Every structure is written in structure tokens, then in C-alpha cells.
Amino acid sequence: MTIKIGRPKQSGTKQEPVRASLIEAAILCFSEYGFDKVSTRKVALAAGVDAAMIRYYFGSKTGLFSAAIQETLAPVLKQLQMDLSPNTPPNPLLLMQTYYRMIATSPMLPKLIQQVLNQPDNPQVFSILTGVIDNLLKRSEKWIDAFEQQHKINPNLNSEWVRLSFISLMIFPVLAPQYLQDQLGVKLKEDWLLDLANHNQTLLEQGLFTSPVIPVSNKNKGKLS
């Protein structure tokens, strides 16, 4: 029997959960053991399905990796694209909420990203991941440009560093080493991450520090009594 590669036509049937389970299992296995050390049989076993389903849905282990990365990050890419619409003002809070919900659903994804970027042993897998990240970064640059065109960026800030600051604020907690996450109380749970999104939004709007207050004694210095 010839197995056809690709997504079945019967969308919404019992076959769809199988595909989703394979993607979830792939992220878990690849992040724990590394892409090259994980067989398709191991992923299928973790998903509780037959290994032939990987070829059926994705064509190969590399195809599974590509689908896992692209489809998991798809909500963030979609939100960035929506924010670039001329009729839709960029929404930092909604973007952070979308990103954090994605992380809460796939908490092992940051570990997988770190692993592939820090140890690019497989050029094909490295290229797949960096291609998706480059797409995100290009959209984020246009996103910041849209803010500048609307005069919503603080003119006292270095415009070249605004994107760096925003991305650092949003992604550092989930990409930080486990030790730092533990020390800082980071939890990759949806409720905690959404609270963080609200905190970040307030920080963006109001700043971190209050304006310096000059003590009364200093105000009166130099004045004649």
C-alpha cells in the first residue's frame, strides 16, 4: 500500500488529533533529547500512534520539525501581520498575550529553540528554525516602524533600540535559563504569563521609575532667608 504524504482531506475527523499529538510529542522529544537523537518511532510512541503516521502527515522527521515550529509560532506571526494592517493600530498587549498563550500551550518550545540555535549540528533544522525567526524579526521591525509613523514612540529613546527593548522584555522570561526562571519566580503557565503581559503593558505606557523628586531642602538651597 502506498502512503500519501500530507494532510488528509477529512479535516475535523479523528485523524486531526493524531496530527496534533505528533506535533506536541515532537516538541517534547526534540527539546529533551535533541533532534538527531530522536527517531520517528520514539516520537510516535510518545504520541501513542503508529510511526507510519509521521510520513503520512509530514513526509519525514524534518518535515515534522518544520510543521511543529511553523504551526506553533503561527498565532504570533498572524497577530503581527494583523497589526501591520493600515486599519489596525499595533497592539502590544494583544501581541504579548498571543505569544504567552502560545508558550503556555507549548512550554517546551523555548528549550527546543535554545537547543537548536546553540548547537546547530543539523544545518537543515537550523535553517528551518532561523527562517521562521527571521520572518518574526522582519515583521517586528515593520511593527515598530508603524508605531513610529503614528508618533507613539518616545522621542527621547534610541529608535534603533526600541525593538530590542520590546523583544527583550517580552521573550526573556521564557528563554532565560531554568536557574534564573526559578530565582525570578517565572512560571510558564497561562495565568501567570497573562499577568506578566499586563505588567509589561503598564511598564511600556508608564515607565519603570517615577520622576525624580527634588527634596524640599535642596529646593531652598541658595535662597535668601
Rank of each mutant, 00 (worst) to 15 (best):
P86H: 07
Y100N: 01
M102H: 02
S66I: 04
F58A: 11
P120T: 05
A67Y: 06
V49A: 14
I69G: 03
S60I: 08
L95M: 07
R55N: 15
E71R: 07
K78I: 08
Y99G: 06
R101H: 07
A47Q: 04
D83E: 09
M108D: 12
S85P: 10
L77T: 09
L77V: 07
Y56N: 10
Q79D: 06
L73D: 02
A47Y: 01
F35Y: 07
A51M: 08
L73M: 13
M82Y: 01
Y99M: 06
K78D: 13
N118W: 10
I113R: 10
A44F: 04
R101L: 03
A104M: 03
S66H: 11
I113Y: 05
A104F: 01
L95E: 00
K42W: 15
M108L: 14
A52V: 15
D50P: 07
L95H: 01
D121N: 15
T98V: 04
L109T: 12
P110T: 08
Y100L: 05
I113N: 09
I54A: 09
A104W: 01
L77F: 10
G59L: 05
L117Y: 10
L112F: 01
R101A: 09
N118L: 14
T88Y: 03
I54C: 12
Q114Y: 09
T88S: 05
P123N: 09
N87Y: 03
G59F: 05
K37A: 11
Q115H: 14
T62A: 13
I54T: 13
N118K: 13
R41I: 09
V49N: 10
M108S: 09
N118H: 14
Q115C: 08
A51Y: 11
A52G: 14
A47M: 05
T105R: 12
V43K: 05
V49Q: 07
A74N: 12
L64M: 10
Q79W: 02
S60F: 09
I54N: 03
P90I: 00
R41W: 04
I54H: 02
N122L: 06
Y57L: 10
M53K: 15
T62S: 14
V49C: 15
I69R: 02
T98H: 00
D50Y: 11
K111N: 15
Y57M: 14
L112P: 04
N87V: 11
P107M: 09
D50L: 10
N91Q: 11
S85V: 05
L45W: 11
Y99T: 08
N91C: 10
T72A: 12
M102R: 00
Y56L: 14
A52P: 04
Y100T: 02
Y56M: 15
M82P: 01
A47S: 12
Q114D: 15
R101N: 04
G48K: 08
Q97V: 11
P120C: 09
L117W: 07
G48N: 08
F58E: 03
T72P: 03
F58S: 02
I113V: 15
P120L: 11
Q70W: 02
G48F: 06
V43C: 12
V43W: 04
F35E: 01
T62P: 00
